[in-house]
Amino acid sequence: MDGIISWIDYISGRPDEILETTWDHAKITLIVVVSATVFSVLLGLFVQSRPTLRALSLSLAGIFLTIPSLALFAIFIPIVGIGNEPAIYALFLYAILPILRNTVTGLDSVPSAVVESAKGMGMNTTRQLLQIRIPLAWPVIMAGVRISSLITVGIAAIAVLVGGDGLGTYIQGGLTRLGLPNSLESVWTGTVFTVLLGLVLDLVLATFQRFTTTKGQRL
């Protein structure tokens, strides 16, 4: 109980600082998720009907996830320097797989009979894609975006190790001062607000998904 009270006192004494740091963390996440979504959906649309390219792109995206995060962050330092940029590039690579895989899976799940009906109605390929295939695959695609956003929020906490911003500054600051006053409170602040940011972002995306999904597909 004393620890909780101490932590509440810690965060109540620096609300503006915490909000600003949380916003910095959110900006990194949003940049990555938006760019990864555009790239992965377009790539998924291109490779979905091309088995060789599809397998290759999914394999490469999977390989990125096997690279230790700090090592991947460090790879970009000689290219773009320290700060948020190496973190954003590394997080972008991590964010690709869930969205790409779900885009391909969602398009695969569209019933062929529906596509054939659209052809019979005289729809060209572009209209089929925009009016039939993407809307039907949308819930699955958005599930991938939500997973990707949660991964990004969590891994972005170590952006501080390459000079980046975000809530990882509290975690690193607390760990480097472990045993000193407010060290644990600092670690808990970074951890709790990272989790809260992930939950809020997921709620926003879930709401967006609901309002952009056709009524017949809403749960």
Rank of each mutant, 00 (worst) to 15 (best):
G3R: 14
I8R: 05
D9A: 04
S12A: 11
G13V: 03
H25V: 12
H25S: 12
V32C: 01
V34S: 13
V34E: 10
F39N: 04
S40K: 03
S40D: 10
L43P: 15
L45F: 07
R50W: 14
L56M: 10
S57W: 09
S59E: 15
L60G: 15
A61I: 07
P68W: 04
S69H: 15
L72R: 00
A74K: 11
I75E: 05
F76M: 03
I77L: 05
G83S: 07
G83H: 04
N84E: 02
P86M: 07
A87K: 01
Y89C: 09
I96Y: 10
V104Y: 00
V115D: 04
K119T: 09
M123Q: 04
M123V: 08
T125M: 11
T125D: 09
P135G: 08
P135W: 05
P139W: 06
P139D: 05
I141G: 09
A143W: 01
I147E: 08
G154N: 08
G163Y: 00
G168I: 01
G173C: 03
L175P: 01
L178N: 03
V187Q: 03
L196F: 12
L197P: 10
L197D: 10
L197Q: 03
L197C: 10
G198D: 14
L199V: 15
V200P: 00
L205K: 12
Q209V: 12
T212E: 05
T213F: 07
T214E: 14
K215T: 14
K215V: 15
